[in-house]
């Protein structure tokens, strides 16, 4: 035990470790909050879909030769894709999951094709890989990345709290919410834009694999044991933050990859909750 505390104290004296902890906590907090909405709206795969769209946009940026300012291309394209996906009314012909699949595979293929044809990057497969696992590892963040992430996460979380009642109404029953005078289009627009920002942010810092996991796992875990919207939301936020913290600390001590360690922690908690729910049902 003493050894662990000693090691942690040693590592925490490095700024990059503190940066990783702060970033991880904030991204997991806001992605789990919006995750509740996304999972209930049947958009669990949106994290994956949108990060592939972002990859396509990044390919476009490199073909255009503006890789340095790639965010100018990536952010608007991803936001547009998110708005297109999330603002559709609940009862349209093409299901959300089919659309996400089409968009995700399409953007990935188009991006890969562009990079190959125009041969702008020396390491095409390396670029594909970074979009999955994070172009900058969470342990190499600088203070600008961290500040931006913290500020955006706080804005996203505050908006969630302020809009909580409206988000519930619009997710539970969009037609009813609209009939009672709520501007459901504006609500869905806000949710879509924030989702896109979280995903782009997450993809660049921790990779799309982890961002997707952060959106779905805490929610699905909480759903095993909790019955109300409020308790599911609170529980997934708490679980998400704890899993990220433990995952990052463990990966530092054991030298494992950060993203996959966090996902492994979330899988473990999911299994515990699942078994607990089984036992409770039997009792």
């Amino acid at each position: 035990m003493g050894w662990i505390i000693e090691q942690l104290a040693k590592y925490l004296s490095f700024p990059f470790v503190r940066y990783a902890l702060i970033t991880g906590v904030f991204i997991s907090l806001c992605s789990s909050l919006y995750g509740v909405v996304l999972v209930m709206k049947r958009y669990s795969f949106i994290g994956d879909g949108l990060s592939h769209v972002a990859f396509g946009a990044m390919a476009l940026a490199s073909v255009l030769g503006i890789l340095e300012q790639k965010m100018i291309v990536i952010l608007p394209v991803t936001i547009a894709a998110a708005v297109f996906l999330l603002r559709r009314p609940q009862n349209t012909k093409m299901a959300g999951d089919a659309l996400i699949a089409v968009m995700s595979v399409g953007a990935l293929a188009a991006g890969y094709l562009m990079m190959n044809v125009f041969n702008t990057s020396g390491n095409v497969s390396g670029d594909v890989c970074t979009s999955l696992f994070g172009s900058t590892s969470i342990l190499t963040l600088n203070s600008f990345d961290v500040t931006m992430c913290v500020v955006l996460s706080i804005i996203a979380s505050l908006l969630f709290v302020v809009l909580y009642n409206k988000i519930f109404a619009v997710t539970f029953d969009e037609n009813y919410a609209k009939a009672s005078g709520l501007n459901t289009d504006a609500c869905n627009l806000i949710i879509a834009v924030i989702t896109a920002v979280i995903i782009v942010l997450g993809m660049n810092l921790v990779g799309s694999l982890l961002t997707s996991a952060l959106i779905v796992f805490p929610v699905l875990t909480s759903l095993q044991l909790f019955q109300s919207f409020r308790s599911v939301t609170v529980c997934s936020a708490v679980l998400s933050v704890i899993c990220s913290l433990c995952g990052i600390l463990f990966s530092i001590l054991a030298g494992t990859p950060v993203g996959s360690t966090i996902v492994a922690a979330e899988i473990a908690v999911f299994i515990i909750f699942y078994v607990a729910a089984l036992i409770r049902r039997r009792a």
Partner: peptide, 20 residues
Amino acid sequence: TQIQKDFPASVKEVVLSGCL
């Protein structure tokens, strides 16, 4: 709707959304 069939919402939360 289909969504309501597995939505985690207590009766109180559903009714309160009418006061929005």
